[in-house]
Amino acid sequence: MSSVITESNVYSRDYIQVIRDRIKPIVENVIKPNAEIIDKEGRFPKENLLALAKEGWNSVTLPEKWGGLGLGYVGLSVAAEEIGKADASTALVYAMHVAASQVIHLFGNDDQKERWLLPIREGAIGTFSISEKATGGHVWYNLSQAEKEGENYIINAEKSFTTSGGQSDFYVLQTRTAGSTDPSAHSFFIVDGHHDGITAKPWNALGVRGNHSGPLKFENVKVSHRDLIDAKGGDISNDGANPGLTGLTAVWLGVAQGALDAAVAYVKKTVHKDFNHSLADYQVIRQKLAEVQIQISGLRSWQYDLARQQDELVKERKPLSLLGSEITQLKVQATELADFAARTAMDVAGGYGYINGVFERIYRDARGGIPMAPSNNLAREHIGKGLVGLPLELWELGK
């Protein structure tokens, strides 16, 4: 990659294409062939993640000092998109892992980075554990609260929709701050995923069946003071937005592209023998495909523009929350585009789209992004309040 990395073209299309070309062999040779069995069996995509770790992709945003590729949010966007084209389950696990790792990188100390980031190159996987059933999509609002025990902490919490639940080697866990009566006071802990007090419930869902995003219970889990992340909760949680949104939006962009790719391949090869016309010969089908392509092209430009801006903010040591609202807007558009692309692919494939196979799998997977935090309904409310100058009032009822 060094041949294209210069001060003038580090974010050029050529640079992005080099990253794509570098990850594609893993996607084509490992991830894509496993997609169907992961969906059918609800299997956690461990084999895929180990293949990515071996080549450094699980450390894509991290600097070389901590075992990473140093490709930042642009590199994450490329990788998550390419993985998302092949398998949404693997891509979601990947995006949340990278986001959790990046939080340790940005907010953790050297001791934490050495203990938790270096093992990633050997296959260690992390994730976030934030949402709670009692507060639903209001993921910034926790009822669980850490308890102080000497220098250490005791965690008792019931979390919902924790990606890679029961599979992660570490969790970046959010609770209310020990001893505080302020519901906006959060603490983030790095919790060893192999602790006996952690119990994961089975994940059985319509789509993304391999991401194991089920409930997770923490019972009397002791966490060392060494694993309290020294950062304000708002800096990490971005005022209620999912801290992994940049990777997740790239995943849904990839899902949309994967749906379009499958649809294009199908209509080109499928021929009606009575008129000797392929499905691609019908104008109505071409126009449906064109509409998906137009929307993907626009979204991809936005995705990479925001990723570049995030990389600049990291370099300048400025808070990523400066882009929080716009990233939330991107999340809404990316998830709804994935859903639209999947529906279009089902439509042009006709009856064959309805039977078990790539079209119905992508159709089920694509729906998962819309309720994912922040849900699109909630995101629109936050965006709308910002437009008219109304406060979000995230904490008022709890004070």
Rank of each mutant, 00 (worst) to 15 (best):
N29C: 08
N29D: 15
N29L: 11
V30C: 07
V30H: 02
P33T: 03
N34M: 14
E36K: 15
I38C: 06
E41M: 10
G42W: 12
R43A: 14
P45V: 03
K46H: 00
K46Y: 00
E47D: 08
E47N: 01
N48T: 08
L49G: 03
L49T: 04
L49R: 04
L50Y: 10
L50T: 00
L52F: 07
K54E: 08
E55I: 00
W57A: 08
W57R: 03
N58D: 04
S59I: 05
T61F: 05
L62K: 01
L62F: 07
L62V: 02
E64P: 01
K65L: 13
K65Q: 14
K65W: 03
W66T: 07
G67Q: 06
G68S: 09
L69V: 01
L69Y: 00
G70K: 04
L71M: 09
L71W: 03
V74E: 07
V74I: 10
G75T: 08
G75H: 01
G75A: 04
G75E: 02
L76S: 13
V78D: 11
A79P: 11
A79T: 14
A80R: 01
E82F: 15
E82R: 12
I83M: 04
G84S: 12
G84P: 10
G84V: 11
A86P: 14
A86Y: 14
A86C: 12
D87Y: 04
A88Y: 10
S89H: 05
T90A: 13
A91W: 08
A91Q: 10
A91H: 07
L92I: 15
L92D: 07
V93N: 12
M96R: 12
M96W: 13
A99G: 13
A99H: 11
A100Y: 04
A100Q: 10
Q102A: 13
Q102P: 03
V103N: 07
V103S: 13
V103Y: 05
I104A: 03
F107K: 14
F107M: 14
G108S: 05
N109T: 12
D110S: 10
D110G: 02
D110K: 07
Q112K: 09
R115T: 11
R115W: 00
L117K: 01
L117D: 03
L118I: 12
L118G: 05
L118N: 06
P119N: 00
P119L: 04
E122C: 00
G123M: 00
